[in-house]
Design a protein around this nucleic acid. Structure first.
Lengths: 116, 116
DNA sequence: TTTATATTTCGCAAAGTTACGAAATGATTT
DNA sequence: AAATCATTTCGTAACTTTGCGAAATATAAA
């Protein structure tokens, strides 16, 4: 009788953040917002991206749901900001995940997959 | 006539790696393999994960396709390894993406979304 | 109050992901 | 050659994601 364990919270969290980052539109938005030192953006993101307004809105919604951005209403405009607290958290768990590997190189690495 | 630009290679690369990382099974595998200083693992991964053999095989295939792991045949076993070169690359682009943000906190940040 | 502007939600279609069991593959042992 | 073992591929079902245009919402300006 095989033992089928569940994932740890850490593993699930990493996968969730990665999912939020797994689309070029969302990467673009995060890259833009995270670089802004004045914190918020209120320009027309749709002009810079190859998607329609409604599609963009959906991506923004997903990023909000994932907690990575915030929207501040200033009718009829909305300013988008990085959610610094959660962005920091995401950074931490990714840094840990990516940088905890043993730097050791061994086992004659090949550049390509042997398995066809 | 609105201008609809394409994504840069960097943005597309980031999204692709994030996609490869967007499932707990794949995070688990990468975490395990990247931590091993003996580079390879050929144990029965399926015993440690809540999925069937065929499903696991699909996830491994995806990670191979993304270039993050390699499989080394030693019939009838296969040893999986991190593809160190590409793992390092992924690390670099993620570190840049996550850490290039202005650390400045301003614009009275709120913890929750204002937009309902 | 009508019109204009910014944005989101709805409804839908197309495509992609995840999962499984069964069949196939490919090598080794009997 | 037959049985065995580790693994992958196939076929299929259920679900999720992505995308769009049209309709809805909500405010401001005329």
């Amino acid at each position: 009788m095989t033992n089928k364990p569940q994932f740890t919270t850490e593993v699930r969290r990493l996968a969730n953040v990665a999912k939020a980052l797994s689309h070029p539109v969302r990467i673009y938005i995060l890259q833009k917002l995270s670089k802004m030192n004045s914190c918020c953006y209120s320009g027309d993101l749709v002009e810079e991206l190859p998607v329609s307004r409604s599609t963009l809105s959906q991506h923004l919604k997903e990023l909000k749901y994932a907690g990575l951005i915030q929207g501040e209403i200033n009718p009829p405009y909305i300013k988008y900001c990085i959610n610094r607290k959660n962005w920091e958290k995401a950074r931490e768990i990714f840094n840990e995940f990516l940088n905890e590997s043993s730097g050791e190189i061994s086992c004659e690495t090949t550049d390509y997959l042997i398995h066809k």
